[in-house]
Design a protein around this nucleic acid. Sequence first.
DNA 1: CTTTGGTCGTTCAGATTTGAACCATCACTG
DNA 2: CAGTGATGGTTCAAATCTGAACGACCAAAG
Lengths: 151, 151
Amino acid sequence: MTDTRWLDETEMAAWRAFLATSHLLERRIEEQLKASAGLTHPQYEILVRLSAQPGHRMRMTELARGVVASKSALTYQITQLEKAGLVERTTCPSDDRGVLAVLTGAGMRCLEQVAPGHVEVVRAYLIDRLTRDELEVMTTAMRRTEQALRG
Amino acid sequence: MTDTRWLDETEMAAWRAFLATSHLLERRIEEQLKASAGLTHPQYEILVRLSAQPGHRMRMTELARGVVASKSALTYQITQLEKAGLVERTTCPSDDRGVLAVLTGAGMRCLEQVAPGHVEVVRAYLIDRLTRDELEVMTTAMRRTEQALRG
DNA sequence: CTTTGGTCGTTCAGATTTGAACCATCACTG
DNA sequence: CAGTGATGGTTCAAATCTGAACGACCAAAG
């Protein structure tokens, strides 16, 4: 057991700020989505991902990876969205085990209605607070860490 | 209703990477803490905050603000930590409504034992992946957004 | 001293998440 | 074709979080 490399002042400040910001932002987003459409953030992300796919459909596992949710959490949320009529389940033609989540017309309309307000929050509290340089630094840095965290 | 200012490519990339990274990192941290000491991340954060205070004690509301948790979530977690013997509740001498959460000796020892492994994860997946410049940019940027999100 | 409005922390019901267990199916091997 | 190990998605119980409602207390004003 080697000695611990503790975080120095700059590192600690970065980590604390990152942590606080991500939690606070999550709260704001959740609040805004709930108020404007009764959606949770995970649900919103699911709709976004589906809408970006050809055929507006995606395999459950792939979708779970995309939105960073556990398989059971996704099962639950898809069931909720299905009850709300925003998503449907289809059996996958190429793999009988598989399930495709498909965005419905109502789901697409819901998304189009909610997205502007959501983007506004993301802008107001994060994107518009950063300079272009900061934005680019953050993108490359976050992509690197995301890469490290996957796999 | 003015036209929506959608996120351009750079902005979207920044936001997606930030979101994915924060969720993935949260998962890793949770996993590591659970395995090494049966703690959740919120619980760990509570111990850290308390340990940094004179007298190892803090008011519930202030603590909730610090770790970015709702009042009821904090009540729940402090109860859990109390059952585990890591924290105690004391009535606040200056305000009979108030409750002070106090870190116990066992709590402090637990923290000292768990912290190295936790820091290692934060380093391995975030801090050590960033250059010094990136770190500093992120700190100022995140602090600015944190500021905006509080209040 | 009482009233008033606000803060403090808890409680409660309901919603969501987690992780393990499970069954069905796949892909490959012999 | 049977056997094997891995994968896909669901289910379940337990843990946790949310938001509203609540009772207790504070602080300032009358």
